[in-house]
Design a protein around this nucleic acid. Structure first.
Length: 255
DNA sequence: ATGGTTGCGAAGCAA
């Protein structure tokens, strides 16, 4: 089974690229973030025609998350089970095949110590709570998405330049550590120790071509899934060419 | 060079 995640930065703007990517990457499940679509206008039929069922949670202008699956979509849950304010369509999950799959879009945080930064930390804490109270780390669980946190310095192009700004601070990394500490493995780190493997590059100033990026899009696997690990890729080709998202898809292949 | 780009939606905000 192949599970992928991709912040598409508007599904309206990216639909053709997503359909093209499904065709050549052949994921069984694709988690998307920043669809920026309300529930009523999600292009469900385009994905049905490509062989995928969908679950989607969106308000329209901002955020929005979705899951596409060709191995079934059951028991869709939008938002946090606790009913906590999730600040706008940032989490959806469904059972795809034998796996509970989450698509998450963690708040950006904007500026350290701002109310947005505090909200980001609170959201990450709520995600940990969601897993603790609703899932079992001994069963197949995949938490996929744009975490807006680079787990370590090797996940950042220039730790000195970015030090002290959002995505790399201690509290953000600790909050992410609480989530993986529940019982999840960062899929990319099962296979690669390398630095310089990024999933997001700013549109501006030619950052992609200068390899100035961060690895903030993660696939986190519970132990039963990690045991089935075959390989992981970050598809940089999807960040090239005509009208790319500023994020590349991450894909993990499991037995 | 204190910059740069994209998306949404129709000016400015968010990323």
């Amino acid at each position: 089974m192949r599970i992928a995640t991709w912040n598409v930065n508007s599904l309206n703007a990216r639909l053709e690229r997503v359909l093209e990517w499904l065709e050549y990457a052949q994921p069984d499940v694709l988690c998307m973030q920043e669809t920026k679509l309300a529930d009523g206008v999600f292009p469900e039929m385009a994905f049905t025609a490509a062989g995928y069922e969908s679950a989607q949670h969106g308000d329209g202008r901002w955020n929005g998350v979705a899951i596409l699956s060709r191995v079934g979509v059951q028991d869709v849950r939008s938002g946090f089970a606790s009913g906590a304010d999730e600040q706008g369509s940032r989490i959806v999950s469904a059972v795809c095949g034998d796996t509970r799959v989450y698509s998450v879009y963690v708040p950006n945080g904007r500026v350290v110590d701002s109310e947005f930064y505090e909200a980001k930390l609170a959201w990450l804490s709520e995600l940990r709570n969601q897993l603790e109270t609703n899932e079992d780390p001994g069963s197949p669980v995949a938490v996929c998405g744009d975490f807006n946190v680079a787990p370590e310095d090797r996940d950042v192009w220039d730790p000195a330049k970015t030090s002290g700004s959002t995505h790399v601070t201690g509290p953000e990394r600790s909050a992410l550590g609480e989530i993986t500490g529940w019982g999840l493995s960062d899929a990319l780190r099962i296979q690669y120790e390398d630095g310089g493997l990024y999933s997001w590059w700013d549109y501006r100033a030619g950052c992609f071509h200068k390899h100035e990026g961060m690895r903030i899009d993660l696939i986190l696997l519970s132990a039963p899934l990690a045991k089935r690990f075959n390989f992981v890729i970050i598809d940089r080709n999807a960040r090239k060419g005509k009208l790319p998202s500023d994020h590349a898809p991450v894909l993990v292949d499991l037995s």
